[in-house]
């Protein structure tokens, strides 16, 4: 009833102030750029994968039947899933801490999350190379501590890819979770505590369920970004941790097989869309308090 009124009132206000013409004139330049710079090339690439002197599915056949490509697709899904889970496990406590800490400290932790976020992915990926290489910081440390006598092979492994991608994508998880946690009214955990719940129960019965919209949003963004991630896996990964985006990159820049690259891109796109829709359905089933993302 009355709770919803201010929300709707705000919407109709802007509709009164700005007519449809105003909205369209604001959207048009961006729309034009989108069509020329994104929709057209993607369409060209996709249609190129279907048409080669007439309609053909030969590229798709190759992508599906050759074990290398299905292996890469499955690996990509697996790595994206692991990265998402790792980011959730690491990111949720950080988001929770930022939402709980008082002023100067919450800013400090938030800055620790945001400053890397504003730093180029390239720089952050190279930083991992510095850390993980044979004579890098981590290996030197392990040898000095006597944990190992020989430097470990850390770089150009799947481990390195997962580690670096988790780090790079972490803010995409932390920010929506933090947003969801911040909107939980303070009196809800208080009420649960008053009603006899231990602090752990307060978290699992009240705080965590109410943060789920943010968790879903953050996981979805992280997962989708991880599926198509290019730079980091290309830099810190090796041949055994090849991912879809890197594979597509190779096809376009080295092998110059554009139709096949188009087919791979289409498969990745369809996979992403299907998973996104599944996520959304899951989110919609969440009762009554979804964030609408």
């Amino acid at each position: 009833m009355s709770i919803k009124e201010p929300h709707n009132a705000g919407r109709s206000d802007s509709r009164i102030l700005y007519g449809a013409g105003m909205s369209w004139s604001l959207i048009l330049p961006w729309l034009g750029l989108l069509v020329v710079g994104f929709a057209y090339p993607v369409f060209k690439l996709l249609s190129g994968s279907f048409f080669d002197d007439g309609f053909t599915l030969v590229h798709y056949q190759r992508a599906v039947t050759e074990p290398l490509y299905t292996a890469v697709l499955l690996r990509t899904l697996r790595i994206a899933l692991i990265v998402t889970v790792c980011a959730l496990l690491v990111g949720y406590p950080i988001a929770y801490a930022i939402s709980k800490l008082v002023r100067p400290w919450s800013m400090v932790v938030a800055a620790c999350v945001l400053i890397p976020f504003w730093t180029s992915i390239l720089v952050r990926s190279y930083a991992w190379i510095v850390l993980l290489q044979r004579k890098g910081l981590i290996n030197t440390l392990l040898i000095d501590l006597g944990v190992t006598s020989e430097p470990l092979r850390l770089l150009y492994t799947e481990f390195a890819v997962i580690l670096a991608m988790t780090h790079v994508l972490l803010p995409f998880l932390i920010l929506p979770v933090y947003g969801a946690l911040k909107t939980i009214p303070a009196d809800l955990p208080m009420a649960a505590y008053n009603l006899g719940a231990t602090p752990i129960k307060v978290f699992w019965k009240v705080v965590f369920p109410l943060s789920l919209p943010g968790v879903f949003a953050g996981c979805l963004i992280t997962f989708i970004l991880a599926l198509g991630f290019y730079i980091t896996p290309a830099l810190v990964g090796g041949p055994n941790s090849l991912m879809m985006a890197t594979l597509i990159g190779q096809q376009t820049t080295q092998v110059l097989n554009w139709p096949f690259a188009g087919a791979l891109a289409t498969i990745l796109l369809i996979t992403t869309v299907v998973l996104a829709v599944m996520f959304r359905t899951l989110l919609a089933k969440n009762r009554g308090f979804s964030s609408g993302i």
Partner: peptide, 19 residues
């Protein structure tokens, strides 16, 4: 601690669990 006082409380904005 509050969770062991066994006191009932009605909050200003009811504080019902929305989920």
């Amino acid at each position: 601690p509050a969770n062991r006082r066994g006191i009932g409380m009605v909050f200003q904005k009811y504080a019902l669990f929305p989920h």
